[in-house]
Simulated assay, not measured.
Amino acid sequence: MMADRQETAPRILLVEDDCETAAYIKASPMFAHMEIKAVANGNQGCDLALDEQWDCIILDRRLPGVDGLTILTTMRAVNVQTPVLFLTTMDGISDRVIGLKSGCDDYLVKPFSMAELSARLDAILRRINSRNQETSLPLQLHFLLSSESMGNHD
């Protein structure tokens, strides 16, 4: 199913309660090739994160309803491995460390540069696309590649 996704626009869930920030991201030409669904509260964001398939989730930490850290830990507890990029004003080192140790894939502090957000999102999407291509290789090729990396040359 993920192989089909490579040919379609990446699906991004944006959970952001600041309507101006969400509109700014959605309107950016840097994201014109993506399908972005924006929601403004944690309860709806959590439901969508758990119930639908996304290529990446951009998640604020401070949200009405369920906070972003709880959404992330809930996702990871039920083995939802969708990449998460925190986009938040919580800029302390301990905030970033807690976010990363809780399972987020990247952490960007507001105010942010749209170019940096775009670059970080592109990096996440490149990683998931390379993983998807690797898992779609024939089993024999996986075996051959793993044998070569282990130094088992004939």
Results as ranks from 00 to 15, higher is better:
54 W>H: 02
61 R>L: 14
5 R>L: 05
48 L>I: 05
99 G>Q: 06
17 D>E: 07
30 M>I: 10
82 T>C: 05
48 L>Y: 01
97 V>R: 10
57 I>A: 04
23 A>T: 15
69 L>R: 02
121 L>F: 04
46 C>I: 06
96 R>N: 00
69 L>M: 03
125 L>V: 09
73 T>A: 04
72 L>S: 00
46 C>K: 01
33 H>T: 12
113 S>C: 07
52 E>D: 10
76 R>T: 08
147 S>V: 09
2 M>C: 10
9 A>R: 12
131 R>P: 01
104 C>F: 07
13 L>Y: 09
66 V>H: 03
113 S>N: 12
99 G>M: 00
71 I>E: 01
16 E>N: 10
109 V>H: 11
85 L>T: 00
85 L>N: 02
7 E>L: 15
10 P>S: 07
70 T>M: 08
69 L>A: 01
108 L>V: 15
20 E>I: 10
144 L>Q: 15
53 Q>E: 14
55 D>Q: 09
47 D>V: 03
15 V>M: 02
77 A>M: 00
138 P>G: 07
26 K>G: 05
46 C>S: 03
2 M>P: 04
50 L>F: 06
139 L>F: 13
152 N>I: 12
28 S>F: 10
29 P>Y: 08
106 D>C: 12
153 H>I: 15
81 Q>I: 11
116 E>Q: 14
66 V>Y: 00
116 E>T: 13
15 V>F: 06
94 S>W: 08
15 V>S: 03
87 L>V: 08
109 V>S: 06
79 N>E: 07
36 I>R: 02
86 F>R: 06
23 A>Y: 11
73 T>P: 03
31 F>S: 02
121 L>G: 00
113 S>G: 13
21 T>A: 14
13 L>Q: 08
139 L>A: 10
15 V>K: 06
35 E>V: 08
20 E>V: 13
107 Y>A: 06
17 D>P: 12
64 P>R: 00
109 V>L: 09
13 L>T: 02
11 R>C: 04
102 S>C: 04
85 L>G: 02
35 E>W: 03
6 Q>T: 07
98 I>K: 03
117 L>K: 03
70 T>Y: 01
83 P>L: 05
116 E>Y: 09
129 N>Y: 04
101 K>N: 07
50 L>G: 05
41 N>E: 12
37 K>W: 06
23 A>L: 08
50 L>H: 05
22 A>N: 11
33 H>G: 05
75 M>S: 04
90 M>F: 13
68 G>P: 04
24 Y>Q: 13
56 C>S: 06
56 C>P: 04
103 G>K: 01
149 S>D: 10
50 L>C: 04
81 Q>N: 15
113 S>K: 11
112 F>K: 13
123 A>T: 14
